[in-house]
Simulated scan of single mutants.
Amino acid sequence: MRSENKKKKRTWLRVTGILVLLILIGTGVYGYTVYKSLTNAVDTMHEPIERKKSEKRTEQITLEKKEPFSVLMLGVDEREGDRGRSDSMIVLTVNPNQNSVKMLSIPRDTRTEIIGKGYDDKINHAYAFGGVEMSMNTVENFLDIPIDYYMQINMEGFKDIVDAVGGVTVNNDLDFTYEGVHFPKGQLTLNGEKALKFSRMRYEDPRGDFGRQLRQREVIQGVLKKGASLSSLTNYDEIFTALGNNIKTNMKFNEMVDIQKNYRAAAKSVEQMSIKGSGTKIDKVYYLVVPDEEKQRVQNELKTHLEIN
C-alpha cells in the first residue's frame, strides 16, 4: 500500500510541477493590493541556494532578453526530523522564441552519478544526500544541460491550490469510481481532493496512461482558466498563500515578473517528454538503467530547445 501511495504522488507531480510554473507565467499583477499579496507570497517562497556557477552556462542568463531557461521541479515528501525525499523530479525548458515548454519527468530509480558523492545511485537520492544543490548538480550532469532555477513543491500542496481558486471545472469522458468517489460523464466541478483523485485513476481506464493524461490536462486547463481570471477573484490572497506555503524557489520577484511579461505565450504549448530505460537489479537493488543512446537523444532535444550549441 505504501509503495502504491508513493506511485500516486509521483504521478500527480507531473501535473503539479508544470501547473505551478504556468500559474506564475500566466498570471498578471492587478492593482496594489494584489501586488502586495503576491510579493508577500514570493518572499515566503524565495529560498536562495549557495551553488557554484554552472560550467554548462558560460554567461549569466538574462530573462529580459527572452533567453531560454530551465527549471528543476522537485516534488518532496516532507518528513519530520529529516530532509525528506524527492519523490518526483521534473525538468522544464522554456523557449520564448519557439513559444514552447518541454517537460521531462525523470524516473526516481534512474541510475546515475550523484555529483558530490562520486558514485552511482538512484537519482532521487541526491536530494536526501545534499538537498536542492546536489539534486540540481546531479540532474545537470545527467542531462548535460544547465539547470537555472529550482522549484520545490510540497506533495500535498496542490489540493490547497485547487481549493484556493474555488475548485476546477472539467469535462469527463469516462464514467468511473475511484477511492469512493463517483465521476459521471459530463462537466464536473471538483475540489482539491476530488481533482487529485480524478487525475490519479489509471487501471480502470481502458486507455491506461493516455486516458489519465487526458484527465490531467483537464485539471491543468481548469486551474489555468481560474488563474487567467485572477483579477476578478476576491480570494487572491488565499491563492497566493497556498502557493507561498507549498513552494520554495530561488526565483526572485523581478525574475517572475520578467517571466510573466516575456514568456507567458510559451505556456500555450507544453510538450511532455519521456526517457526510457530497463529495470535492472544491481547488488539486489532495483535501478532504471538508461542506455547511452537514449540519454543522448534526450540531451540533444533539450539542448536544441535551450538553443545550446
Rank of each mutant, 00 (worst) to 15 (best):
L21P: 08
M134K: 01
A242H: 11
E133R: 11
R14S: 13
L302W: 12
G186Y: 03
R51W: 05
W12S: 10
M273P: 01
M136Y: 02
I115G: 04
N137D: 11
D148E: 06
D237I: 07
P206I: 01
G26E: 08
A41P: 13
A265C: 09
Y286D: 01
E55C: 01
G166M: 06
N254E: 15
K197S: 11
Y287Q: 12
R217Q: 10
L196S: 14
G222E: 11
K276M: 05
M251L: 15
Y150V: 04
S274Y: 00
D82S: 14
Q299G: 07
N137V: 06
S100N: 09
G17C: 14
G131K: 05
K281N: 12
P96L: 10
K117F: 01
E67G: 06
L174Q: 08
T189W: 00
D209M: 03
I90Y: 00
A195E: 05
G208C: 06
P107G: 14
Q216R: 11
G26W: 02
T93I: 05
Q98M: 12
E238M: 10
T62P: 02
E307S: 13
R202S: 11
G157V: 06
N97S: 10
E156C: 01
T16P: 00
T138G: 05
D144C: 01
I25Y: 15
E140H: 01
P107H: 12
S70M: 05
F183Y: 07
I61T: 08
E47L: 07
E294L: 08
E307I: 02
E293R: 00
D237W: 09
K117P: 12
N254Y: 15
G166T: 03
M201V: 10
L288Q: 13
L196I: 07
V34I: 04
Y127T: 13
L19Y: 05
R10G: 12
A195T: 10
Y119D: 14
H182P: 00
R10F: 03
G167R: 01
L92N: 11
T27M: 13
G186T: 03
R200H: 07
T169H: 04
S232E: 00
L233V: 02
R2Y: 04
F129P: 00
T44M: 12
R264C: 04
S269L: 09
F198R: 13
I114K: 01
N246H: 11
D175T: 00
K281Y: 07
A41S: 14
I239K: 01
A266P: 02
F183S: 03
W12N: 07
I153S: 06
D82K: 15
L233Q: 12
I23L: 14
K276L: 07
S3H: 04
S100F: 00
G118F: 15
N171T: 10
T58P: 03
T249W: 07
G211L: 06
Y203I: 04
G81V: 02
S88L: 08
G118M: 09
K9H: 13
T304G: 13
P96G: 09
I49E: 06
N171I: 03
T62S: 14
L63Y: 02
E64W: 01
E204F: 03
Q98Y: 06
K122C: 13
I282A: 08
G166K: 00
R207C: 03
I25K: 07
